[in-house]
Amino acid sequence: MTMAFHELRASYAFVERNINLVKRYWGWELVWMLYTIANSLAVVLIARGANTAVGGQPLSTAQVDTLILFLAIGALVWHYLAVVFQTVSEMISWERWEGTIEYTFMAPVRRGTHMVGTALFSLVYGFAHTAVVLVIVVLAFDLNMSHANYVSASAVLIAGSLSLVGIGIMGAVLPLLYPERGAEMTHVIQAALVLISGVYITASEMPEPLATISIFSPATYVIEGIRSALIDGEGFAELWPTMVGLVASGFLMIPLGVYVFSLGERYAKRTGRLKRSG
């Protein structure tokens, strides 16, 4: 019990450290925020210009508004999931850049504690970051959110975050094993997820084999679930199968991620890969 309490408290070390890093790198955070806002607005503007670009039978204002909302949700939810994935998968890259990896790996905390702390931070950070972008997008496009069910949307988001944390932990093994190129390899996973998860197009409408592959991405269900909650106002009654599926996927992905990471850590300690700073 005492040990469990210690591990829980120790996980806060990673939260506090990362918050301090965000404060110290505030200039970079500002740039990152502006980049995200510009990116999200650019995607949503596609809907605004749909009529001019395509020609023919024009979309009604209501249809354009729905398209704007559809793209905005895709962009924002993907941003949140990407931040969660990136923060978790980069936990090793950060330590390598700073030269602290050996200190952290020598500390008397379980790797699970390290990951829980990083994951907690990623959820809070991802949520705060996305909330700021959301406010700006809503103000910029005067989005109609009158049907939105925010409670069920949040529940889907939280349930879906678990799987992304698990995939992120698996991704974190790459910078551990490949000090020079591991961080870039995690970006490949991220790019693959954005391609197959129906971020800007409904997954079922994607060309084969992407449509089939999209079934295996938890992000597909998160984005679809949140669209249903925010556009159609669906609540727990309609979305509970999605939520249960996402939670189950998270409970599978996180232990799998921790197991894969532990194999990678053991290999790194056998071959001396912890000390190289990449």
């Binding site: 408290r9 120790a10 790198y25 050996e102 500390a107 008397p108």
Partner: peptide, 26 residues
């Protein structure tokens, strides 16, 4: 362990770095 290269988060202050260590070591 104290190594030849001081392993710290260079942007953080000594207090922030040491508090991180303190929390890890309980």
């Amino acid at each position: 362990r104290v190594s030849v290269e001081a392993s710290f988060f260079k942007k953080l202050s000594p207090m922030e770095n040491l508090m991180y260590g303190a929390r890890l070591y309980g």
